[in-house]
Nucleic acid binder design. Structure first.
Lengths: 299, 299
DNA sequence: ATGAAAGCGCTAACAG
DNA sequence: CTGTTAGCGCTTTCAT
């Protein structure tokens, strides 16, 4: 009939029926702690771009750093029969049964950034140790010898790894690690409250390596306000490369976190595993090489 | 049977089958120009939070400011039978047939931020005019009389509306609008290339209202580097309130864009319409009231 | 070769 | 009141 033909002209198969039949949804579930965060939104962007190219879709769920919500989200995504899960666990997650169960029931998972060693699967992380080593080495190579490290709590993995990278760089150059040059200080507010302490150390240091950009920028501002010139007197390096690093004056030398690449890589790994189903072995942890972006806060 | 019972214990209905049967997916499709942008990621966050509470899910598609990709995304989301669409159109979109067709075929759409007057449906926008008026009025009320406006191109809606808000505030206070005090300058790079021009004007101005935060911050830096004190000599107000505004020194007084609220509101409107199907009338355009955040770049 | 039927997992409608 | 069935839209299988 004419009408039937007319319908066929812009006929669009129902993806729902298709999925129900084929047991494949071409949809990946994403569980992410916070969307409003430059790093995480970069990750989503990378995921979406690659997924789009491969004919997949992304279902985004925000755990808001809440364990319970993470569990509910996982369940909802499984109910929707997503082909796989992309997960960065919330800070409050100590129990991983919801994710272990998902894997046991046949839904592959790729962890990114916030990984768990309790679940054996593919993982993607950034090499914090190496990033910190590069940052510190760069300070040394541009003339610094006495480098203050503003660190995250050492019981956190990123705090520990970045601290150790800092130490390694110093040792590589036969510089002694001095305890008084390592300060637990990882927020802008921290810098302001420790201002006096930092300024007391300032005359004898020639470099600062901060565990993140906002801390680095706050330190720069405190130092500048008290007559120290950046980078002439003191070089400063951050970690993270949000857009802040290009806004500060001087612009901040920092370690890029490559969220976009991490997102792409996570999806690549997941799709790859979906293409080879049934294979339970060969899980890999991919470590993304950090990259130092040299700007004007170092010589 | 025992086995049947055991299955029931952690039985989870297949949402796919359910959707196919009920013709409802409890899923909303989101088409957004860029994910990596503080405003847009705030919007997504707000959408996700409300959707989560209402039992809906969000399928995120990034158009990357690309018309073709926007069309493909729309089609894909319709294929997946999303219950409704949340759309902020790409900068390159001039033809709206893909969205008109979606509406005609019964999929409701809510536009947010980047709306089109070619498609009649619910819309949510921020009151740029009012925001600019508030920003300028605040400068006047803190003592400014000669206010430089760094504007976006006036052929863009946000450029036009913010410029007109600026003018209105001046007129409200019987201050003449001077052409030479309106500069087309809406990026950090712009500020740097127009540096001389801005500095030539600087001695006679006592306020700056910039069309966005990064422009405001760049202007502050240029002024400070040349001996002008902020806010003592010149008060500065931005627009947008990304996190940059709290990083700059001094912290920046700016108009909040309320992305999170906009996201929530868009989902609320869409779900509301889904709850009352068939009603083709009563489309509303909701204007979100802007909010001035006073920080240290104004007195 | 083309066409009918079964079944993916579910629920609303109907029959017993 | 419980149990069976039809059908959501599709593809794969099987029969013609």
């Amino acid at each position: 009939m004419v009408k039937t033909f007319a319908q066929k002209v812009n006929y669009r198969p129902n993806a729902l029926a298709l999925s129900l039949r084929s047991q494949k949804t071409k949809t990946l579930g994403l569980i992410i702690p916070e969307i409003v965060h430059h790093f995480f939104s970069s990750v989503i962007s990378g995921m979406e771009d690659l997924a789009y190219g491969e004919g997949y879709h992304i279902m985004v769920c925000q755990s808001a750093e809440n364990f319970h919500r993470e569990v509910i989200n996982t369940q909802a995504l499984l109910d929707l029969r997503v082909d796989g899960l992309l997960v960065s666990v919330s800070k409050t997650t100590k129990n991983f049964d919801h994710l272990k169960n998902a894997m046991q029931d046949g839904t592959p998972i790729v962890f990114f950034d916030r990984v768990s060693d309790q679940v054996e699967t593919d993982k993607i992380v950034i090499d914090d140790f190496e990033g910190a080593r590069m940052a510190t080495t760069h300070l040394i190579e541009t003339g610094a010898q006495k480098i203050l490290h503003l660190s995250a709590p050492l019981h956190l993995l990123i705090g520990k790894n970045r601290y150790e990278g800092y130490c390694m760089a110093l040792r590589d150059h036969n510089i002694e690690v001095e305890e008084k040059l390592v300060l637990k200080c990882d927020t802008r507010e921290n810098v302001l409250s420790l201002q006096k302490h930092i300024l007391a150390l300032a005359p004898e240091i020639d470099g600062v390596f901060a565990v993140n950009d906002s801390t680095a920028i706050a330190a720069m501002q405190v130092l500048q306000a008290n007559g120290f010139q950046i980078p002439k007197d003191i070089g400063v390096v951050g970690f993270g490369d949000g857009p802040n690093a290009t806004i500060s004056s001087p612009t901040l030398t920092t370690v890029e976190q490559k969220g976009y690449e991490m997102g792409r890589e996570a999806v690549r790994l997941l799709i790859q595993r979906l293409a080879n189903p049934g294979v339970k072995i060969g899980y890999q942890t991919k470590v993304i090489a950090p990259f130092l972006i040299k700007r004007n806060s170092t010589k």
